[in-house]
Design a protein around this nucleic acid. Structure first.
Lengths: 246, 246
DNA sequence: CGAACCTCTCAGCAAGCTCTGAAACCGACC
DNA sequence: GGTCGGTTTCAGAGCTTGCTGAGAGGTTCG
């Protein structure tokens, strides 16, 4: 069975082969980080630095999804999108765009079922959006049913952005939500503060690991409040999320 | 089962296979957006840029419905319509026309059961009209009964353009109606302001996502007025419509 | 031609979110 | 028991986001 490097089962194509993703960005550093994060998901990842290369690569790879920077050296992402659809009509596209460019140029994109994230983004955000796109497009095998993460009596519905413990709804801020999602996608595994910072916070975040401690403390107040704790500290290593009693 | 990309069950042919739609417009950007939106409904979509290509494509695809621009480079939509009827007599046609276009000719057309929308239109409008045409023509399997959307105690009759909460009629302006329809077609799912803007507002709308907040506020005053709220804000993500106590 | 309605812009206010710094706390080891 | 590094928590500043009232322009309809 195809698995991620992290050990958990990968989201695959219906036939069990790895999902294929093409990353298109002219910043080689960023592209490298993205590719790494997506390979970590157990996917087959290629990359291209401009529109022309992207098309050539797409024709060969026939990717299920494309992560596409809107600003490219030779063309813009929208032109590439059209060409991509002639190569593979059912391809999913996740756009990467600058914060202030959003309003005018993104128009019409999400209408087709595609999605976008604004720079600077967190890797968890990109992966989550991509998983959502692939799942909804029916390109990915439904591992369990629907967009729900379950650890013990803790349940997260990613589409509704709802979290409940033992049936009781929990209100979370965006950052708290993303942190908990990361923990829930890696249950029973010790995650270092650096690891968490790299995945959950934006790649350009300048702050220190102290924020992670802070947000863990917020989460504990909401998730563990009064109940048997699920979030545990491993001194000197990091944190683990575990179901209460196995 | 055939499903839409959004996860809800698709409107299909009586035999369960995807509905087939042909999009005919000479503006490639617009055609692309339309195709995307219709694919998102779980339908099989092809496109053509002029009358000749449309006929060739129609002969091959045998579409259940055609979205047809009235102004085409080689002929006009009415001529294409006649030829289409010789290829497939029971095809449904949704015309796209400029606001100030010849109203009388359109009127003659719609008498035949076909329909039209004026540019600039919203994608929700096109999809809704198309669904209506197909349903009335008996080409689509009736998933539920009739043109009613129901979320909790909120009921929308699309044909009558009527909305009621807990049996009490609610008066809505056109934009409010379309926004609520979009929310009701995607219950329990967080919809971003961009997503809403792309589907509910016209494709040429230049404004900001700020309007969405405004209209959500209007809707709340009418739909949630005094009652247990169904429209919820998810800070940093968007809005959700949920039944009161699931 | 006027009235009613609808849509959208603007701007101020309110609330919520993120992060910093400081201080209290804890466990482990001498 | 004391010390020290790591961890938790508190309080608050600064910023972002969302809500809403007022009103301008446009359209529809009588």
């Amino acid at each position: 069975m195809n698995t991620t490097r992290s050990g958990r089962p990968a989201l695959t194509r219906p036939d069990g082969t790895p999902l294929r993703v093409l990353v298109v960005d002219d910043d080689p550093d960023l592209a490298e980080v993205l590719c790494g994060a997506l390979r970590y998901e157990g996917w087959r990842v290629h990359s291209a630095g401009d529109g022309a290369a992207a098309l050539a690569e797409a024709r060969e790879l026939m990717p299920d999804a494309v992560v596409l920077d809107v600003m490219l050296p030779d063309t813009d992402g929208f032109t590439v999108l059209r060409s991509l659809h002639t190569v593979k009509p059912d391809v999913c596209v996740l756009f990467l765009t600058a914060r202030d460019a959003v309003e005018d140029r993104i128009a019409g994109i999400t209408a087709g079922g595609d999605d976008y994230v604004t720079k600077p983004f967190s890797l968890e955000e990109v992966v989550a959006r991509l998983r959502g796109l692939l799942r909804r497009a029916g390109m990915a095998r439904q591992q369990e049913e629907g967009p729900r993460l379950i650890v013990g009596d803790l349940v997260m519905d990613e589409d509704a952005r709802e979290v409940a413990r033992a049936g009781e709804l929990i209100e979370l801020s965006p950052t708290e939500f993303e942190l908990l999602r990361f923990l829930m996608r890696n249950p029973r595994r010790v995650l270092s503060k650096t690891q968490i910072l790299d995945r959950v916070w934006s790649y350009d975040f300048g702050g220190r690991a102290h924020v992670v401690e802070l947000y863990i403390s917020y989460l504990r107040k909401k998730v563990d409040a009064g109940r048997e704790p699920m979030i545990h500290t491993v001194r000197g290593s990091g944190y683990v999320l575990k179901p209460v009693s196995p």
